Every structure is written in structure tokens, then in C-alpha cells.
Computed example of a mutant assay.
Amino acid sequence: MARSASPFTGVRRAALVLSFCATALTPALAQTPAPAPAPAPAQAPAKATNKVLATVNGSDITELDVAQAREDVGSTLPKQMNDAARDKALLDYVIDLKLVTQKAITEKMDQTPDFQKKMIYYREKLLMEGYLGQVAKDSTTDAAMKATYDEAAKAQKPEIEIHALHILVPTEDEAKTVEKRLKAGEDFGKLADELSKDPGSKGGDLGWFTKDRMVPEFADAAYKLEPGQVSDPVKTQFGWHVIKVLDKRTKPFPPMDQVKDQLERFVAQRAQSEAILKLREAAKITRTDEPKADEAKPDAAKPAEAPKK
């Protein structure tokens, strides 16, 4: 209850703000939680071939066509579908696609100016995605990711974090009662389970946290304690707390394999951004939406007209 924000707010913010320096990556890597156990890898589908699965008015539909549809719309199918049902749904989709396309061609919809413009746009979009995908693949080498990780680890500033327990109660009198029972020798964790109004901490355990993750009154009191010490009652916006510090340490930097996915995204996005910037710098770009020099002058710079009589 004493937390002022989600423990990983800094992670999400750092992931959104893509910087070209490793220091921007540091908080993201340093605060990433341990990943959940990876699910068992799914069996890879057999490589698609030119085997014909259906014909529509004499036009063949092959495994390659269905594989392309799977890449495009496969993720929209219900997850509970088994492989056979998924394959059937994708084939039905491609059959319908072929039927509607044939009808649209008979209506000469492919010959309209609007269609031609869209063809040009989507061709360029596919080429852009293909090129940037290759840039990302080429950039995410083991050496590049290791260098970025090492730079981020080196840039991390030492920061103390503590491991603490707390008991949260509504009133000061209740907090003083907690304090007395603790001094009488009762177990902190058992007392927390019995009395604490914080449903998010079993046995009052808050885990490891840095000072910025707690509201100021709580953080100030907790950071003044040494391991093993218990605080006097502390008032915050959530109620009254009694705090016990278990340990203190310098916040460790996470191992590389724990943040590999995030590190790979960072390196790839940085490489893509740099590639686009280089293309812009080498190109001659003229924008017609930018005001001309004389149009950019403010009205105040124009000579005042004489008042009309």
C-alpha cells in the first residue's frame, strides 16, 4: 500500500523513449523483472510447398498461398483452435479472397486511379518493412547486443535498495498496539498476516525496492533503519505503518540473458532509426508545406498602415 507507483513504471517509460545512448537503456535493463518460465516450443510447421490445395475457377491455391495468409491473419484466429481447424479456416479465407478478387477484377476495380495509388503505396510499405526488417536482423548480432549491455551496465549509477516488511493499519492507536506486540516478541510476518490491511504483501513482505518507489514518508522512515530494526508508527496517505528492514544492498544489474528480448528490440530499433536518419541526410527533400521565407515573417514586422479618414 505504500507504493507510489507500479514497480516497473520506469521500465515501460524507458522502453517507449528510444534513445541513441546506452544510458537511456540502463533503467530499462536494471529494473526488468525476472521473466516467467518460457513455454515449451511449438512444433515448427512443415515448410510450405507449391502443392495445390484447391482451385477456384481454374486458379490454383497452394500451400505457399496459405502460408502467406497464416503470416498475415493467422494471429486473429481463436487461440483455442487446433491445427487442423486453423488450417481449414485459413484455406477457406484464401478461397474467399480468390473469389472476391476475381469478381472485383470483372468489375474492373483494379483499373481505377484509386486502386493504382493504393498499389503504389502498399508496394512501398512492403519494401520499407522488408528493408528495415533486414536492418534489424543484421544489427542484432551477439557482439552488438553485448556491447550495448556492457555500456548500459557501466552507466548505471550505484543505488541502494532495501528489503522490508510492513504492517498497515487504519489508526495510530492500532499501530501503537502493533508496536507493543512486536516488542513483546511476536513474529512480524504472522502479525502482518493477522492485522495488516495491505492485501498485496503476504507476511508484510514488500520485497526489494528503491527509495523512489515508495511514498516519501514511508521511504524516509524505512531508509533510516538498519537491517533488523523496526520503525515507530509512520503515517502516510494509506494509513499507519510499522516497518521492519530485513536487508540493504546496492541494486544489482540484471544478467544479460534476463533482458535479452528487450535488449534485442532496443538494438534493432536504434539501428532502424539510424538507417532512416542516414537516408534523410543523404537525400534532397523538399516539403511544400513549409512556409516561404517572406510568409514566415510575423505580422508585427509589416509597416503599419496609415489610418483611413
Rank of each mutant, 00 (worst) to 15 (best):
T141V: 08
D138T: 09
A48L: 04
D65A: 07
V230N: 03
L77R: 08
K248P: 02
R13E: 09
A219Y: 00
A153E: 15
D138K: 14
M145F: 13
T32V: 02
E281N: 15
E107Y: 10
E179K: 13
A42L: 13
G133D: 04
K108F: 03
A301Y: 07
C21H: 15
I285V: 15
P252L: 01
S201P: 06
V135D: 09
E290F: 12
P35K: 06
P298I: 15
P254W: 02
I105M: 09
K47R: 14
E305P: 10
T141S: 15
W208C: 01
V52H: 05
A164Q: 05
E107H: 03
K292T: 14
P233E: 11
I243G: 08
T112F: 12
D205N: 13
D193Y: 03
G58Y: 07
F253T: 01
G207V: 10
A147D: 12
M214W: 03
F188E: 05
G203F: 00
R181Y: 01
R265L: 08
E226I: 00
M145V: 11
L206N: 02
E186H: 05
Q229H: 11
Y122M: 14
P298G: 06
A85K: 15
R249E: 02
V178S: 08
E217T: 11
I285Q: 06
F115V: 07
P7V: 02
A184W: 04
T286I: 13
P291G: 06
A46H: 07
A67R: 05
P7L: 09
A271N: 07
Q272H: 02
V215E: 12
I105E: 14
R12A: 14
L127V: 09
Q116M: 14
L225N: 00
A175Q: 09
L246C: 03
A184T: 10
K98I: 07
D193T: 12
K88Q: 13
A24W: 01
G133I: 08
D110N: 15
